[in-house]
Amino acid sequence: MASPWTGIVEDARHYPSPHNSQPIVLGVEDDRTATVYYDLRRGLPAESFGIPFGHVCAGVFLAGLDVVARAHGFAVTETLDHAEMDFTRLDRDPADHLHRLGRVALRPHAVTADDREALAGFTARRTSRRPYDATLVDESAVSAAVDIAAASGHRFRTTADRATVDEIVRVNQETLFDDLRNDAVHEEILHWLRFSKRQAAETGDGLSAETMLMPGPVLRFAMEHRGLWEAPGVGGVFKRVYLSTMRGVRQLGWLEGPFSTPAEYVEAGRVFMRVWLDFTARGIALHPFGTVITNPRSHAAFVERAGVDESDGRMAWMLFRFGHSAPPPLAHRRPASAMTIGTDR
C-alpha cells in the first residue's frame, strides 16, 4: 500500500459498524486516490432496514476518514456513486462481493491542534454497553448535538422522562428476543457473535461476549437454544443478565431526518458520527439501540411513545442511550491490510 494511506487506514479502521462487521474496503490506486467499497459479505441484509444501514455505515466511515486524514495532513474530497446495494449478487456470483461506493482523493492540509485532538477522540471512541450512572448530561452537549444535526437538515431529540425512557428500554430488550425468532436474523447474528476473548481477538471483528458484558457460555447457550427463552429459569436468567447492563439509563436520544435514498442514508451516517464524536470529546458514553429502529413492530412502538412525526420522507433512523459510564471493554478491529485491496479492479 502506498503512503500516506498506510497511516490513514491504520487509524480509520477504528470506525464503528453494525455488529462490528467492518464492511468498508479501500482500493488504493495511488498515494492520493482510492476507491471505497462495501463488502456485501459483511452486510446485514436479513434485518429490516439492514440494507439502508449499509449506506449509513459508509457515511459513518467517510466522516471518520475525514477526521483521520486531516490529522495526517490531508483533506478528503469525494465522488460518490449512491447506487443501491444488491445483495442478490452474492447468490449469482460469490466473488462479486464489492459494492462500489465511490472514490476519495487526498489534498494537502495544514494540521492544526484541533485536528490532532479530533483524531484522539476518534480513536478513543467506543460503544459503551456498561451500566450508566443515572445522571443527565450537560445541556451544552444536547445543544451541540442539535446544531450538528440541524447543519445537515436533521433533528436531534432527547427525552429524560423516566416513564418514556423505561418503556423504550423495555422495548429494546423485547426486540432482541423478537428479532431472534426470525430464522434469517438469528443466523445472521450468530455469525457475528464471538463467545470468548480468544475468538474475538482471532477474528478481529464481531460482537464479543466481553463487550456485551455477557458470560460467553451463557451467551452461547442462550443464542443456540432460543426455544428455551420462554421457559422458566433459563430464559429468565438470560433476560436478567441482559437487563443488568441497562441499569442507570437516564436519557435517550434519537435522530430524525430524510431517510429514503442511498444519498440520504450516507448523510445520515455522517450526522450520527459527528454527534458521537462530539459526545466522546465531552466524556459522554453512547450505545445505539439499532434493533428498535430496524424491527418494524418495535419501531412503531418507539415512534408512538416518543411522539415522532415520520411524514414527508423523514424518519427516526437512529436511537441510542447516552450518559456516563465506566470505560467499556475494547472491541477488536481487523488489521489495516484486511480492509485494503490492490488496483486491479
Rank of each mutant, 00 (worst) to 15 (best):
A231E: 05
R126Q: 14
M214L: 13
G253D: 07
K197N: 12
M339T: 11
G206H: 03
V303E: 11
I168D: 01
A69Y: 06
A95Q: 14
E188I: 04
M1R: 03
K239C: 01
D147A: 15
A118G: 06
P217D: 12
P4G: 14
A263M: 05
A120Y: 04
A2M: 11
P16G: 01
G64D: 13
F49Y: 11
L330K: 06
G43C: 11
D278H: 15
I189F: 12
D178Y: 08
L277G: 00
D30H: 07
R270M: 12
M1W: 02
F320E: 05
Q22Y: 10
D183W: 08
R274P: 01
D138A: 13
L44T: 07
G54N: 13
S244A: 14
A300N: 11
W192K: 07
P45L: 10
D39R: 14
S152C: 06
F322C: 00
L286M: 14
D178F: 10
S196Q: 13
M273N: 09
V303A: 15
L180C: 06
Q22S: 07
H191S: 13
V266L: 15
L252K: 00
A141V: 13
P4A: 05
R157H: 09
P258Q: 08
S196Y: 03
R41S: 11
A75L: 04
F177N: 06
E10I: 02
I284G: 00
